[in-house]
C-alpha cells in the first residue's frame, strides 16, 4: 500500500542510501509522480547497463538528424556521425561542438547530466564547484527534512536548490 495516500497499491519502490542511512519508500504511481521532482534531485537514478553497448545507437541520434544533412562532417577532423558510430569514439575535440545536439541525449544516458561541474584549465572556465557543493549540502538537508516529514522546510529547501541550480546553469 502507498505510504503517502494509503489508498492505491504501491508500485514504485525507491531505495536510497544517504549518509550511510538506507531508506525505502513505497509509493503508488500517482504519488511517485507528484514527488518526482523532489526525489529525482536526491541522487540521480544511476541505471547502468552496458554503457558501451548502447553507445551511438541510431535511435539516439535519429530525431535530431532529421533536420540535418546526413553527411554532415566535423569541420576539423572530417569525421561524420556514421564514422563516430562505427569507431565508438570521437575524432577530435571539435566533434563535441560539431555534434553537440546529437551527443546530448547520449551523454544524458551515460552520465545523467550534460553539464560539467568539475575542474577547469587555469585560464579558462569558471568554477561551478562551490555552487555544486552547496547544492549537495542542501539536498542532504532536504532528504533529512522529508524523512522527518517537515514538509514546509522541505519546500523551502527545494526552492533554494532550484534557484542555485538555475544559477549553476547560467554561470
Amino acid at each position: 500500500m502507498c505510504e503517502v495516500c494509503h489508498k492505491e497499491p504501491a508500485t514504485v519502490h525507491i531505495t536510497r542510501i544517504v549518509n550511510d542511512q538506507k531508506t525505502e519508500m513505497h509509493l503508488c504511481a500517482q504519488c511517485a509522480r507528484e514527488r518526482g521532482e523532489v526525489e529525482m534531485n536526491f541522487e540521480p537514478s544511476f541505471a547502468f547497463h552496458n554503457i558501451l553497448a548502447g553507445l551511438f545507437e541510431p535511435e539516439s541520434t535519429m530525431v535530431s538528424q532529421r533536420n540535418r544533412p546526413v553527411a554532415v562532417r566535423c569541420s576539423r577532423c572530417g569525421m561524420s556521425l556514421a564514422d563516430i558510430r562505427r569507431l565508438g569514439k570521437l575524432g577530435c575535440s571539435n566533434c563535441y561542438a560539431q555534434f553537440e545536439r546529437e551527443l546530448e541525449p547520449l551523454l544524458k544516458r551515460i552520465h545523467q547530466s550534460t553539464d560539467h561541474a568539475g575542474k577547469h584549465p587555469k585560464d579558462r572556465g569558471h568554477d561551478r564547484r562551490d555552487v555544486r557543493r552547496e547544492i549537495e549540502r542542501l539536498r542532504e538537508l532536504l532528504h533529512i527534512a522529508v524523512s522527518k516529514e517537515a514538509y514546509e522546510e522541505a519546500a523551502r529547501l527545494r526552492d533554494q536548490i532550484r534557484s542555485l541550480e538555475l544559477q549553476a546553469k547560467e554561470d
Binding site: 554503457i51 558501451l52 553507445l55 565508438g88 569514439k89 570521437l90 575535440s93 563535441y96 561542438a97 553537440e100 551527443l103 547520449l106 551523454l107 551515460i110 552520465h111 547530466s113 550534460t114 553539464d115 560539467h116 561541474a117 568539475g118 575542474k119 577547469h120 584549465p121 587555469k122 579558462r124 572556465g125
Partner: peptide, 25 residues
C-alpha cells in the same frame, strides 16, 4: 602540464575525451 599545454576543454562538457564515457572530469 596545464601551465605549458593547451588542453581540449569546453565550458559545457568539460575536458573533451576520445570516448564520451570519460568526458567532463
Amino acid at each position: 602540464f596545464d601551465e605549458v599545454l593547451h588542453f581540449a576543454y569546453g565550458d559545457r562538457f568539460g575536458y573533451l575525451t576520445a570516448c564520451p564515457t570519460n568526458v567532463g572530469t
